[in-house]
């Protein structure tokens, strides 16, 4: 049965004030059901990353409503949003953003510590995830000793640590070449089957769309194209 993990309903967002105000999103509607791998395409500055920030509660919407697993993000307290980001949402960054002073294993343990897991439980889970990412031989390496593709796989393992329902991936292949990008997206595309997770990924790389279950286009602040692959 398809369950809706994410509902974006008529969302508006702009930045700046007065004459300098720029409307980025102008009535965006989107939903995400379990097991989906949705890719959002659009030119730079079209508001793709802004949508991810709004979903994660990092910035408030001007108008409209966003629901993540039945929770209205706008009505959440700071603590509730934090809890949502810890347990329901996993975030993958374009530039990986791993703590360079920690090993790959420790980086994956960070979100597990944030929800109060003990050291042994966190370590076991982090090891499992790094094995899933085929990085068991690189667990104790610092991120600066890993390649871009490996760092991104650690970033994905970190995002999966607390078994989230939604993965938000913000141009996860933006810093990688085409071969590595294919590898990362291929691996991401297997996650909805392996785990009960949906993925919303923003990208401007059209060559990656073959791995998505649905493609949406964002142009001029609105979702214009929706196609099932």
């Amino acid at each position: 049965m398809n369950r809706e993990f994410l509902t974006i309903n008529d969302v508006y967002k702009g930045f700046g004030e007065g004459d300098n105000r720029v409307e980025i999103l102008k009535g965006v509607n989107l939903n995400l059901t379990n097991g989906e791998f949705v890719m959002m395409l659009g030119p730079s500055g079209s508001g793709k990353s802004t949508i991810l920030h709004l979903i994660a509660g990092l910035t408030p919407v001007d108008r409209g409503q966003i629901e993540v697993c039945g929770v209205n993000v706008q009505k959440c307290s700071t603590n509730k949003i934090l809890e949502l980001r810890r347990r329901t949402i996993g975030y993958v960054f374009q530039d990986f953003r791993l703590l360079q002073g920690l090993t790959a294993l420790e980086n994956v343990m960070v979100p597990l510590y944030a929800v109060g897991r003990s050291r042994s439980v966190a370590k076991k889970r982090a090891e499992e995830l790094l094995e899933l990412m085929e990085l068991s031989h690189r667990m104790h390496h610092s991120p600066r000793k890993l390649s871009g593709g490996e760092q991104q796989r650690v970033g994905i393992a970190r995002a999966l640590a607390n078994e989230p329902k939604i993965i938000l991936a913000d141009e996860p292949t933006g810093n990688l070449d085409q071969r590595l990008s294919d590898g990362i997206i291929k691996m991401l595309s297997t996650l909805p089957q392996k785990m009960e997770v949906s993925i919303l990924m923003v990208t401007h790389n059209q060559q990656l769309t073959k791995y998505a279950t649905r493609i949406v286009g964002l142009t001029d602040g609105q979702i214009e194209v929706q196609s099932n692959v």
Binding site: G90, Y91, L99, V110, R158, A159
Partner: peptide, 14 residues
Amino acid sequence: KKKEYYALQVIGVS
């Protein structure tokens, strides 16, 4: 490390 610390907040670290 500002970006890294911000990333920690994004993934739910208080």
